[in-house]
Design a protein around this nucleic acid. Sequence first.
DNA 1: ATGAGGATCGTCT
DNA 2: GACGATCCTCATT
Length: 204
Amino acid sequence: MEADLLGPVDVVGRALLGCWVVTDRPEGQVAVRLTEVEAYSGEGEDPASHAHRGPTPRAAIMFGPPGRLYVYFSYGVHWCANVVVGPPGRGSAVLLRAGEVVVGEELAASRRPAAKVPRDLARGPARLTQALAIGPGDRDAHLLEASSPVRLHRGTPPAAVSAGPRVGISVATDLPWRFWETGASSVSAFRAGGKARRRPAPPG
DNA sequence: ATGAGGATCGTCT
DNA sequence: GACGATCCTCATT
């Protein structure tokens, strides 16, 4: 699995689709199969990445070894989760944007009272962390270690993958580094620059 | 179905 | 001191 995380960030991002993110908590286990991710490069050509300004205190984790969890606080309200990828020192990461709950749906639903249908349980980066109960306590978690309460492992890859612009950013919007399972119902709504846009649902 | 606005605070300039 | 890799509610079409 670790070798799968070492390629170019967009290639690794695609490869993470279909993988499972599993959390074991006192209340029980929840697993999400990833259906949507975004790649963020640390190599300097990606101004949308939190690693763009180098290893600041927040982004330092991204410059460490692959397979760690980078958790950040968003909009003063939400926590979002990334998998650190690439060789150490590179600063690349893949944002976990959405998935389908495959284990522990009842528990996930109890953590997501606003979700009225199963597809909404982990549809969106902050929703996904809520469903999995990922938060600041999981900063730097070792996703590839069996003893970790937050883990990543292979699953069933999607039959087809679509690509498009990343969501909610205002720079480098030309890079098609958002990847999703073609046709997946749990893929989040497209938004650009933090504002809603009238646009058809993702193709497929 | 779509859009506006608010919540709320860590991080970096 | 400004700005988000967002989500939810409420109002209007």
